[in-house]
Design a protein around this nucleic acid. Structure first.
Length: 667
RNA sequence: GCUAGCGUAGCUCAAUCGGCAGAGCAGCUGAUUUGUAAUCAGCAGGUUGUGGGUUCAAGUCCCUCCGCUAGCUCCA
C-alpha cells in the first residue's frame, strides 16, 4: 500500500504500482496533459517514473507554471537537437548535453564543421521532431547490456563514459525517442510537443570531459521556452545586456581603450575613465588609512631570484612575460605579484611583536601574460593594478585581521551597490601536487578561515576544493554581472607558507625574546582596478553615481545671449569642487539636452533669461527630467550632499543568470 | 593555447555573380539665437587589418601572419 500526500493536503492510497501521470489523470485529464514532471519528497522524477509499491511519500505534479519544469523541458530539447543533428549528419558521436542557465548545450564529435549557416537546417529538423511529438521513453539496462548497445550504435564516447565515469553503476538508464537513443539519467518531459519555442544560439569548441589534453568537440548552445513570447523576451534581454557591455560603453563614453599596436590586454585609461578610477582610489585610500594601513611604493620589476624564492616564477612561468636578460647574467621579471616586494620591506629591519600587525598597502601594477583567448576588455588583461595589501601578524591576530579584511571588502561592495555576489572558499585539493607547504599548515589555515567566515554574515559561502592559491587558502568574492557572467573581484588569502623557512623565513621577536614566524594575509577588496571598473561599467550601464561620474553637471544656455551668466555659473560650480562643463554652442536647447542625456551626465543646469535675472538654475535630472529652477547655491548644496553620501539612485537588480536580469537603468 | 566566426572612414553599417568603395552619426565651415531628447546647408574624411597568390579585373576567391568576438582550457 502506497500513501501519497499532495500539496493541497489531500492523501491518496494505492494498492497497485502507479506513476505520477496516473495520479494526474485521476485528478483530471487536463492536469494529466499539463504534467511535465513530478517531485517526490523534493526529488525530481519523470511523469512516467514508477512510484514505490509501499510506504508514504509527498508528491508534487509539475506543470509549465513550475520553474523546475523548464529545466526538464530544456534537457528534452537538448535531446531533440541531438536527434536533429544526427539525422542531418550521420555518424555524429554524442558526448554530453546538459541544461545550463537559460538553456542547454550538447557536445558532438562529427566530421562536418558546424557553423551558424547550419542552424536553420537544424532548427527546421527540430521543429519536425517537436511537431511529431513522439514520447520520450525511459529504459533501464544492466551496465554490460548498455555498453554493448552503445558499442553497436557506434557511440564510442558513451562507451568510454560507461567504462570510466559510470563503471560502478550496475544499472544505467537511457531515453529513447523514435530512432534516437541516448544514455541519460533524465528526467524528461512526456513528449517534445510542450517545447513552445527554441533557438540555437552559438557553436563553439569544448574539450571532451573538460580536459584540454583530450580531443575537442563541437558544442551547440540553444535556449528553449514554453511560450514564444518568453523566447522573444529572453532575446531582448540578451540584446539589452550587449548594450551595456563595458567594452562598448567604454568606447562610447571614452572611459578606456586598448590599442593592439601597443599590445593586447594593455589598458589605456582615458581622462574620463581616469576620473572614475581616481575617485575609487581616493575612497579606498581613506579606508586604508582609517584601518591602520601604511601606503608604500615598490618597483614594478625585480630580480628573478625573488620570484624563485616566492615560488611565483616556477609556478607560473608560462603565464608571465619572459624575464629581461642582462649582459651580466642577471634576469629581471616584470612583477606578477606585489607580495615579494612587501615581504622585502618587512625583512628590511628586525621586527618585534609590538610592531604587529604590520599592514603594507600599495596600488601595485603587475603584469601577467594571459593566454590570448582569455583576454576580455578590462576584465581579463595583461597589465593591471591591484588594490593590494599584505598584513604581517602573529598567530593570535589572524582571526581579527582576516575579519577586518572581509568587512572592508563587504563595505566596498555595499558602497557600490554590488549585492549580487557569493563567497568562494578556495581550499587545496589534497590530491594535487600544486601546493607548497605541509598538510598540517594547510589544515590550520583552512580551519582558521572556515571559523572566521562562519562568524560573519556572508552570503552563499561555498567551499571549493582545488581553488586555493598555491601558498594558501582564500576567500574570493565572486560578483555576477549583467549578462550572468561571474567575476572574481575581491579576495582575502591566508598564507603560512611564504613567511615560512622554506620560502622567505620571516621572523619577529616575541615577548619571550625568541624569534617566531609571522602569518601573512594577502587581500584586495577590488581585486584590480581594471576588472573592477569593467564590471562597474556594466553594473551601472555606464551611468555612474554622482560621486563617480566623470562629468557631474553640464551647464547649458538656452541662447548665446546668456552665455556670460552661464560661464559665471560654471565657474562657481568648479570652485565648489564639482566636475562641470558648459555647452554654449549655437544649438537648440533640445539638442544640448539630448547630447548630455546620451553622455549619461547626471545633472544639467539649463539657463535662460529668467534664470539669469533671478540668479537661479533650472535643474534637469538625467533620470527624472526637469526639476524646476532653484538658486545656484541651493543646487550646489544638493549635489554636494549626493556626492558626500555616495548615493546610488538606481541599482541593477542582481540575480543569478541572464534570464532573471531585468532592465533597470533607464538611459 | 584550442575550435569556430569576424576584420570596410573616429563610430554604426552598406557595396548584387569578382566589374568605378558608399551612407548615417561624429568632425570642420557657414547660416540660424533657439526654453527641456536631434535647426539647415556645405566641406572633408579610405593603402577595405598585414604580407603574398589567382585573375583582364579582388573589399569580394585562396594562403600566411596580426587582431577581435563566442565558447573551451587557464587565472598567483
Amino acid at each position: 500500500m502506497l500513501k501519497v500526500h499532495l500539496p493541497d493536503g489531500s492523501v491518496k492510497e494505492y494498492s497497485h504500482r502507479v506513476r505520477p501521470l496516473d495520479i494526474a489523470a485521476e485528478i483530471g485529464p487536463r492536469l494529466a496533459k499539463a504534467t511535465m514532471a513530478a517531485q517526490v519528497d523534493g526529488r525530481l522524477i519523470g511523469a512516467d517514473g514508477l512510484l514505490p509499491e509501499d510506504g508514504e511519500l509527498s508528491l508534487r505534479l509539475l506543470t509549465k507554471k513550475d520553474s523546475e519544469s523548464l529545466d526538464v523541458m530544456r534537457h528534452s530539447c537538448a535531446h531533440v537537437m541531438a536527434r536533429a543533428v544526427m539525422r542531418l549528419f550521420p555518424g555524429t558521436q554524442l558526448a554530453f548535453g546538459p541544461t545550463i542557465d537559460n538553456g542547454f548545450y550538447y557536445d558532438f564529435q562529427l566530421e562536418h564543421k558546424l557553423s551558424e549557416e547550419d542552424f536553420p537546417k537544424i532548427e527546421a529538423e527540430m521543429a519536425k521532431i517537436v511537431k511529431a511529438d513522439e514520447p520520450f521513453e525511459r529504459v533501464e539496462l544492466a551496465h554490460d547490456n548498455a555498453r554493448q548497445l552503445f558499442a553497436e550504435l557506434g557511440q564510442t564516447l558513451k562507451v568510454e563514459h560507461l567504462e570510466d565515469g559510470l563503471k560502478d553503476e550496475s544499472q544505467v538508464s537511457f531515453y529513447r525517442q523514435g530512432e534516437f537513443i541516448d544514455l541519460c539519467r533524465g528526467p524528461h518531459i512526456p513528449s517534445p510537443g510542450a517545447i513552445g519555442a527554441c533557438k540555437l544560439l552559438s557553436v563553439a569548441g569544448a574539450y571532451w570531459k573538460s580536459d584540454s589534453s583530450k580531443q575537442q568537440l563541437q558544442r551547440l548552445y540553444g535556449t528553449a521556452w514554453f511560450e514564444k513570447k518568453e523566447l522573444d523576451d529572453y532575446l531582448l534581454r540578451v540584446e539589452e545586456a550587449k548594450r551595456r557591455d563595458h567594452r562598448v560603453l567604454g568606447r562610447q563614453l571614452e572611459l578606456f581603450m586598448i590599442e593592439p599596436n601597443v599590445g593586447s590586454g594593455l589598458v589605456f585609461w582615458l581622462p574620463k575613465g581616469a576620473v572614475v578610477r581616481r575617485e575609487l582610489e581616493n575612497f579606498l585610500y581613506g579606508e586604508l588609512i582609517r584601518r591602520g594601513y601604511h601606503p608604500v611604493y615598490t618597483p614594478v620589476i625585480g630580480n628573478v631570484r625573488l620570484y624563485e624564492t616566492s615560488g611565483h616564477f616556477p609556478y607560473y612561468k608560462d603565464a608571465q612575460f619572459p624575464p629581461i636578460e642582462m649582459e651580466d647574467g642577471d634576469r629581471y621579471l616584470l612583477r606578477p605579484m606585489n607580495c615579494p616586494h612587501h615581504i622585502t620591506i618587512y625583512q628590511s629591519k628586525p621586527r618585534s611583536y609590538r610592531d604587529l600587525p604590520l599592514r603594507l598597502a600599495e596600488f601595485g601594477h603587475v603584469h601577467r601574460f594571459e593566454q590570448s583567448g582569455e583576454l576580455n576588455g578590462m576584465t581579463r588583461v595583461r597589465g593591471f593594478t591591484q588594490d593590494d595589501a599584505h598584513i604581517f601578524c602573529t598567530e593570535d591576530q589572524v582571526a581579527d585581521e582576516f575579519r577586518g579584511c572581509i568587512e572592508m571588502t563587504q563595505l566596498v561592495l555595499q558602497t557600490l551597490g554590488l549585492d549580487d555576489y557569493r563567497v568562494r572558499l578556495g581550499f587545496r585539493d589534497p590530491a594535487s601536487d600544486k601546493y607548497v607547504g605541509n598538510p598540517e599548515t594547510w589544515d590550520k589555515a583552512e580551519a582558521a578561515l572556515t571559523q572566521v567566515c562562519g562568524e560573519l554574515d556572508l552570503p552563499n559561502v561555498r567551499i571549493e576544493r582545488g581553488e586555493a592559491a598555491f601558498y594558501g587558502p582564500k576567500a574570493d568574492f565572486v560578483v555576477t554581472d549583467c549578462i550572468g557572467r561571474e567575476w572574481q573581484l575581491g579576495t582575502v588569502q591566508l598564507d603560512y607558507n611564504l613567511p615560512g623557512k622554506q620560502r622567505f623565513g620571516l621572523e619577529y621577536i616575541g615577548p619571550d625574546n625568541a624569534p617566531h614566524q609571522p602569518a601573512m594575509i594577502h587581500r584586495a577588496p577590488f581585486g584590480s582596478f581594471e576588472r573592477f571598473v569593467g564590471v562597474l561599467i556594466e553594473h551601472f550601464a555606464g551611468a555612474f553615481p554622482l560621486w563617480l561620474a566623470p562629468e557631474q553637471v553640464r551647464v547649458m544656455v538656452v541662447s548665446q545671449k546668456v552665455e556670460d551668466y552661464g560661464r559665471q555659473v560654471q565657474k562657481r560650480l568648479a570652485e565648489a569642487g564639482l566636475r562641470v562643463t558648459g555647452d554654449y554652442r549655437a544649438e537648440k536647447i533640445g539638442a544640448k539636452i539630448r547630447d548630455a542625456q546620451l553622455e549619461l551626465i547626471p545633472y544639467m543646469f539649463v539657463l535662460g533669461g529668467r534664470e539669469a535675472e533671478e540668479g537661479k538654475v533650472a535643474v534637469r535630472d538625467r533620470l527624472q527630467g526637469d526639476m524646476g529652477a532653484i538658486p545656484v547655491e541651493e543646487a550646489i548644496a544638493k549635489l554636494q550632499t549626493e556626492i558626500r553620501e555616495k548615493t546610488i539612485r538606481h541599482v541593477v537588480k542582481g540575480s543569478a543568470g541572464l534570464g532573471h536580469k531585468t532592465e533597470a537603468n533607464a538611459y
